[in-house]
Design a binder for these strands. Structure first.
Length: 593
RNA sequence: GCGUUCGUAGCUCAGCUGGAUAGAGCGACGGACUUCGAAUCCGUAGGUCGCAGGUUCGAUUCCUGUCGGACGCACCA
């Protein structure tokens, strides 16, 4: 599809060029990029549209007249071009009606295959994606769920578009916040384990982090003691390290369980405790080269005021590194470990300023790849009641939320009397819950703050993940019935496909086919601007299109067996496309639900 | 104060490098289950795209200003 589009674009562009030449105008008509190809709003207008307004002034003709002349020029080129479709002037637009049989053929060839996507605009690009990056003092919450699904989905989209992707996670396993939960555990824990208290291990650690607030009330020196614990940790005190290791293990293992449940994983884990001293040497080198400067008290600074930022501290007066110093070191290390064409940080938009400074500092240190760093900033997830706050207990815990959604989905399955039809209702319910949650989080563009309305997300009607899952399940259902009737012909040899394609070259099947064909441009768009929301919009469009199609176009109960067989092939392609789309959006695909 | 970002239907959101009549879902109202699964579908109502300028043949989209919200401007992470 992409190639055919390009072919028509080139043909139209060269027609415009010769039009300019024959009018005796030597003015340039701009490069081919200035000719935009779009989709006409209605199928009956054509499959590709070129608006010609921009050429009116250059050619001293109305766009309507230009369209007519371009159409004439293109028609004159004969079969060599016209076997790929027909050009038609439609007002100020030059539209193309593509050769539908060949397009249908391409779609049907998807069949039940997994990897039919041939369009790979990101081929050979190496992209590293960093996401999640939890603290080890508490379990994941709703905000992490948005981060995780954004990072995972974007990685899958980039991979599908042909890129080599490396997913990395940086665990924040050191610092004062970790020491607080350790201190509270020393005071209240009594040496108990998560098993002793019957808690998931990360929730167990989180409980003690919350208990630190109680400790502060009981003991005014609690903050001081936490600082003391941090000093002990940094000096390598064995007892402190052993407690730290134990609690971190609990936290990380619990968090990994949630990842597995969510269907998220990583190619590499970095631990801040192992990387936090990196970057110091880089800063000292930069200082020696005059990129940074030393203050009278001994601290090291960078002045970014000329690019609209402030002066930033890079090393404390005692020579220790801070947050941004670590990120400098980590970025440089990564560029050595796995040279990338691009590094994407999926981090909340609160830290936008931090990343602008980081990228600029790396630029000043002379790393040419600093221009290939990208902060995928996402907005906060708010509740109808306001912002989530740890201290006010308004944080929505990730595991609890998935549990609640699962329970609700199960109730829905039972209410519809489908519990005996879906296999294990609990398993299916959790997959529906994840579909609901992930789609809800991905449909909004990342940059925006979003409102998480538990009620709406718990409802499975409308523009939701379960709706998309349902349409996938319906496609499967038709295919199952088709097998029983013996109408389905799955052979993928060229002649049988093109025979089926001819049957499907009609007005009623076209809107669905056109939608299936636009998958690659949705994928390309989502990968280019790094927004899974574009793929989510495509998923909904496909679901709605399929729903409308099978309502009006009987597949099995059709008097024409050839049409039935052809449409069954089409349903097969629909199913295959849904599987791909669901995979990209972290929505579990369901054969029945 | 400075910076970043957002403002589209009653609510939650789409609208891709400026292009053909600004779209979904929820909610409201009215319809469709002897028919491939009604977690569905169809119809109706609902918009000065925050406001004011500017660029352009053309602006929800780009620029400037302005109003409103969010976030940021630590020797915290």
């Amino acid at each position: 599809m992409t190639d055919i589009k390009l072919l028509w674009k080139e043909a139209t562009y060269s027609a415009l060029k010769s039009l300019a030449a024959s009018s005796g105008l030597n003015e340039s008509i701009g490069d081919i990029e200035s000719l935009v190809a779009e989709y006409p709003p209605k199928p009956e207008l054509g499959d590709i549209g070129f608006p010609l307004f921009g050429y009116a002034k250059l050619l001293r003709k109305s766009p309507v007249a230009i369209a007519i002349e371009v159409e004439k020029l293109l028609l004159a080129r004969g079969e060599e071009l016209l076997r790929y479709g027909r050009p038609k002037a439609v007002g100020p637009y030059l539209n193309i009606f593509l050769d539908r049989v060949s397009i249908v053929g391409d779609i049907l060839a998807r069949g039940a295959k997994k990897n039919w996507n041939a369009s790979q605009p990101f081929e050979s690009r190496r992209v590293m994606v960093e996401f999640s990056c939890p603290n080890t003092n508490k379990p994941l919450h709703l905000g992490h769920l948005r981060n995780n699904v954004l990072g995972e989905s974007l990685s899958r989209i980039l991979k599908a578009a042909g890129a080599q992707v490396k997913k990395v996670n940086l665990i924040n396993d050191r610092g004062i916040h970790i020491c607080k939960s350790m201190l509270a555990y020393q005071v209240y824990g009594g040496g108990r384990s998560p098993e002793d208290e019957g808690l998931k291990s990360d929730h167990f650690v989180g409980k003690y982090y919350v208990l630190f607030n109680q400790l502060k009330k009981e003991n005014p020196k609690a903050e001081e003691k936490a600082q003391e614990l941090l000093r002990l940790w940094e000096s390598g005190d064995p007892e402190t390290l052993s407690l730290w290791k134990k609690m971190n293990h609990w936290a990380v293992e619990g968090i990994k369980t949630t990842y597995a449940r969510q269907g998220v994983d990583f190619d590499d884990y970095y631990f801040e405790s192992l990387t936090y001293t990196r970057g110091k040497q880089e800063v000292l080198d930069g200082l020696a080269r005059g990129v940074f400067y030393r203050d009278l008290d001994g601290s090291v600074w960078v002045d970014l005021e000329d690019v609209g930022l402030d002066k930033k501290v890079l090393l404390r007066k005692d020579g220790t590194s801070i947050y941004i110093t670590q990120d400098i070191g980590t970025a440089i290390q990564r560029s050595k470990d796995w040279p990338f064409d691009e590094l994407v940080y999926v981090v909340a938009s609160e830290q936008h300023y931090h990343f602008r400074a980081l990228f600029e500092i790396l630029n000043r240190l002379g790393y040419s790849w600093s221009k290939n760093l990208f902060h995928l900033a996402y907005g906060l997830v708010n509740l109808p009641s306001g912002r989530m706050k740890t201290r006010e207990g308004t944080v929505v815990d990730a595991d609890d939320l998935i549990d609640e959604l699962t329970a609700l989905a199960k109730k829905e399955i039972e209410a519809k009397g489908r519990d005996s039809l879906v296999g294990d209702p609990t398993v299916v319910a959790e997959r529906v819950a994840l579909g609901a949650l992930h789609y809800y989080l991905l449909q909004t563009s990342p940059t925006k703050d979003m409102l998480y309305d538990p009620e709406q997300s718990l409802s499975f009607t409308g523009n939701t993940g379960p709706y998309i899952q349902y349409m996938g399940a319906r496609a499967c259902s038709i295919l199952r019935k088709g097998k029983e009737t013996g109408l389905s012909q799955d052979s993928l040899d060229e002649s049988s496909i093109s025979a089926a394609a001819k049957v499907l070259d009609n007005g009623s099947d076209w809107p669905l086919i056109r939608c299936l064909a636009s998958f690659s441009s949705a994928l390309e768009g989502a990968a280019r601007v790094k927004e899974p929301s574009i793929m989510a919009a495509y998923a909904h469009e496909l679901a709605a299109e399929f729903s409308a199609w099978y309502r009006d176009n009987p597949v099995l109960s059709n008097p024409d067996p050839a049409l039935s067989a052809g449409r069954l092939r089409l349903v097969n392609a629909v199913k295959s496309t849904f599987e791909q789309v669901c995979e990209l959006l972290c929505i579990p695909f369901l054969e029945v639900m």
